[in-house]
């Protein structure tokens, strides 16, 4: 083989993997990181309906953002929604996983039922629950027809309670997924430990509390990260279920960002709110991804 052909062939051979990866990486750099920088810049300009790149105002929009009542409502709502959503999904998921793990007949069938909402779009979920909780024709009416005339359920149109309907629908959609995560964790625990615990005289309850659940720490962490990140990003569900209403009672950061950017012509403020969302998610996701993808020695 002649030397000249080899050098050109070798260059290609050596760099082919990089070449193959480069389009995806370039796309990521441009569409993710480039766009983040661009939005960061917009958040520091006086952009309103359209981006105005030369009107730098520093952190003015962030100050404005924090003085906006709607943003305060959005943050309060996110705190309520996020806390309850994560907590209930976690508790319910763990409970169902433990119950399903008791050598249940038709376990596969039940699991399928618990998990199917995860395959639906949040828009479908929102539509279904909106109808189910409809104050005139939904659950309330059914209860009345069954004789519970004092039953009243108007959360969907009650500004104080509407955010809780979002929690219900969100939990309905995601808790089965959390169940699946915990179930996988439970199945990963070595059976012999459980036998040992039994011989040590631990009751079923003690075995779960002292031996099994402590070993699920990684699943708790994963579930928390996934749920927290979904809570912060949640947009579709709120739009479909309450549309942010009644009034602005169920405003969340994601809906806030959308309306301020595209309908209220406050692009600078909208961009600032998007940056705040990004920072919050990054604070949760980055350490998690770092820990999860860290090179496992040996492999």
């Amino acid at each position: 083989m002649s030397d000249t052909t080899r050098t050109s062939g070798d260059w290609l051979r050596q760099n082919l993997p990089r070449l193959v990866l480069s389009p995806s990486f370039a796309i990521t750099l441009f569409f993710v990181y480039g766009f983040i920088l661009y939005t960061a810049w917009i958040s520091m300009t006086r952009s309103r309906m359209l981006p105005k790149l030369d009107s730098f105002v520093g952190f003015e929009n962030y100050g404005k953002l924090w003085k906006t009542l709607n943003w305060q409502i959005a943050l309060d709502n996110l705190a309520i929604f996020g806390t309850l959503y994560i907590l209930i999904c976690g508790v319910l998921g763990l409970l169902l996983a433990i119950l399903l793990d008791q050598k249940i007949r038709a376990e596969g069938f039940l699991r399928t039922i618990y998990l199917y909402p995860m395959a639906l779009s949040f828009i479908v979920t929102g539509t279904a629950w909106k109808w189910f909780l409809n104050p005139g024709l939904g659950l309330e009416k059914s209860m009345h027809e069954w004789g519970f005339h004092s039953f009243s359920f108007d959360w969907l149109i009650n500004p104080k309670m509407a955010i809780y309907t979002v929690v219900i629908a969100g939990v309905w959609q995601t808790s089965g997924f959390v169940m699946a995560m915990f179930l996988a964790g439970l199945r990963g625990i070595d059976n012999e430990q459980l036998k040992a615990a039994q011989l040590d005289g631990a009751s079923a309850f003690q075995t779960y509390r002292r031996i099994i659940i402590p070993q699920l720490r990684a699943v708790f962490l994963s579930a928390f990260v996934v749920l927290a990140h979904m809570a912060i990003k949640s947009y579709d569900l709120v739009v479909a279920l309450t549309g942010g209403g009644p009034g602005n009672a169920t405003e969340v950061p994601a809906t806030f960002m959308y309306s301020y950017t595209f309908t209220r012509n406050q692009m600078g403020v909208g961009a600032a709110s998007a940056m705040v969302m990004l920072m919050t998610i990054a604070a949760i996701i980055v350490p998690y991804l770092y820990a999860e993808t860290r090179e496992k020695r040996h492999g």
């Binding site: 993710v32 939005t39 709110s273 990004l278 998610i281």
Partner: peptide, 13 residues
């Protein structure tokens, strides 16, 4: 990380 970002951040650009 690109698939975990809140996509609101890329809407404008």
């Amino acid at each position: 990380f690109g698939c975990f970002i809140p996509f609101q951040i890329v809407l404008i650009p």
